[in-house]
């Protein structure tokens, strides 16, 4: 696997760039509390004396209207944005893959029921769901993540189900039946590993969109609440200062742009590697 990965990374410059950028983001997200110059700013400290300072050596990204260091906010915000997106995808995968496996393998009325329910959820606008959840449970980051996971899983259900349908009658699945394996075990040991590739690729590409949506929800006030340093929220706060203090929205915006682009590049690369491995072309 290591050799294969190196081979393709070398062949695919864009993937390696994406991978590097992503690695920087993940590293800074993990180390943020230690490398952020003013970690207290993200916890609610304000410095009225330093409000709206342009970028300088003290404040590489300038400060906001409360005098908080934007560099620290963006750094600590990466934990919230990337983490929130990641948790959303994991939840959506858990629901989507499980239902897809059951629908595809069981067939019959269970398949029918699961897929019709999936269609209904698909037809339901995710934004509306987020608004509804925010309205009933109150706006918070956790609820935004919940709302997104609940509207995102049907894509994975559909993908997994179509994979399972084509694998269910594959000779190696029949062979596993002949080897005395129970349906549950066949599903987990033989079908899932072979069905999961396109879903993993799709999920890695979706991560970018989910982070973007999360930022959007926070921007609208339905996601992270102040003083949580979330990228969309920082931009929402800075929207009044777009024309007068350019750095306020520029740096968190750049962070979103870079992170999402990097994720898309990596997703593409992953697609290449996994598909080739599938075909046995190493």
């Amino acid at each position: 696997m290591g050799r294969t990965l190196r081979f393709y990374v070398r062949r695919n410059l864009m993937t390696s760039i994406g991978l590097c950028v992503l690695a920087v983001f993940v590293l800074t997200a993990i180390l943020a509390p230690w490398i952020a110059p003013y970690p207290g700013d993200a916890a609610g400290l304000v410095h009225p004396a330093h409000q709206l300072l342009p970028p300088s050596w003290q404040h590489p990204m300038g400060t906001d209207e409360l005098g908080r260091d934007l560099f620290s906010l963006v750094l600590l915000g990466s934990r919230v944005s990337l983490g929130g997106g990641f948790v959303t995808i994991v939840f959506a995968l858990l629901i989507g893959v499980t239902l897809g496996l059951i629908a595809g393998y069981a067939g019959g009325w269970l398949d029918e029921a699961i897929m019709r329910f999936t269609d209904i959820v698909l037809g339901f606008p995710s934004l509306l769901l987020a608004v509804a959840i925010a309205a009933t449970l109150g706006p918070s980051l956790d609820h935004a993540v919940l709302a997104m996971a609940l509207s995102w899983w049907p894509w994975y259900t559909r993908l997994i189900r179509s994979q399972v349908l084509s694998l269910r009658n594959a000779d190696f699945v029949q062979a596993a039946r002949l080897s005395g394996r129970s349906p549950a075990r066949i599903l987990v040991r033989h079908i899932l590993p072979n069905a999961v590739t396109p879903v993993v690729v799709q999920a890695s590409m979706d991560l970018g969109s989910v982070i973007l949506t999360l930022a959007g929800l926070s921007f609208l006030g339905l996601g992270a609440q102040p003083p949580t340093p979330e990228w969309g929220l920082i931009i929402a706060n800075g929207q009044n200062y777009v024309l007068t203090n350019w750095w306020y929205v520029t740096f968190p915006g750049l962070a979103i742009l870079l992170a999402v682009s990097a994720l898309n590049l990596v997703g593409d690369g992953l697609n290449d590697v996994l598909n080739r491995r599938e075909r046995g072309v190493l």
Partner: peptide
């Protein structure tokens, strides 16, 4: 037991050869 026509298709591509035999 049964042996299938397509030798490629009857082995799980994600399963090592020995595991295919260990399974039964």
């Amino acid at each position: 037991q049964m042996v299938f026509q397509d030798p490629g298709g009857s082995l799980d591509p994600r399963q090592k050869v020995i595991d295919a035999v260990r399974e039964p």
